[in-house]
Amino acid sequence: MRTLKTSEAAQMLNVSPNTLRAWERRFGYPKPARTAGQHRMYTFGEVAALRDALKEGLSISSAVSRAQESLQADTQMLTGALNAYELTRADAAMAAALALRTVDRAVEEVLLPSLVELAGQHGEDSAPWSFSAQWAQDWLRRAQRMTPPPTRRMGILIGDATGGRIDLQDLHLRALELFLARAGARIITLPVSGVAGLGEALAAFRPDLVVVAGGSESDELVARWAYRARVSAGTLPVTLFHRSTSRVRTTGSQALSISPSAAHREILALLDSAARTEAPSLSTVDLYAAREALQERNAS
């Protein structure tokens, strides 16, 4: 995918870099990614779509709407392909989306919205949904396999509490895994239902942060898993992804954004700040809560 620096994008649109930044503030478009040095990086496709729309537009707002509509065509193409059970066309729709966007944005702006639309159309118990969700999961795994090896020392332990069913929660978790892997993090995903051998796995992996993802498993099961993880790996920051925040006050965990890309940025920021200072410890209340849950389970 071709990207442009601010000066290149501004030149292409025949405006000043300040104008581009003003549009980003007011209209949220074009929406640049950031380089490691925090410089703006525009996708060629977005800038080209806006350039064409400006030629026919009467205002920046109408041009932005038109440019966004032309980019949303990829979502419609993917939804149509999945509704017609055509895998090749679905892959082609994602390839077209990738021509204009980064992988992260293609997933966030095309793949996940298409699946949300299909879930709304057919329900998560339907054949079209199952077909589409399996394709999406497969696509995300393929994308993750193509990411380069981890470049950062930080390790992230993901407790999968999605219940093993392919639903929207599960796809959001796969997307989060992909984004973290692309950011160079080491990741290990383990189901919260299995605690046997967890100590050995964590001794080898040595995570720096725990993400509990999904809301299908019970609090008791998650507390037991978190307790065993803490016993094995020590005190670690705990975050919740797509899980009810009702227990945040008692456990001291941090709730992440629903969007996988926002959540992955929050995780990286948390790890960066933890690297600079000592990792924040979990409250004593949390330890007691986990221990009590374990004792109750053993008693029953």
Binding site: N14, V15, S16, N18, T19, A22, W23, R26, L54, G57, L58, S59, I60, A63
Partner: peptide, 26 residues
């Protein structure tokens, strides 16, 4: 300018208003 109403000088041929950056010159 369709947004701020600024009237550019005749020699200026910008499509985007250079005064506010947020409107098109018509």
């Amino acid at each position: 300018c369709g947004y701020c109403g600024h009237r550019p000088a005749p020699e200026e041929d910008h499509r985007i208003c250079t005064s506010c950056d947020l409107g098109m010159v018509l």
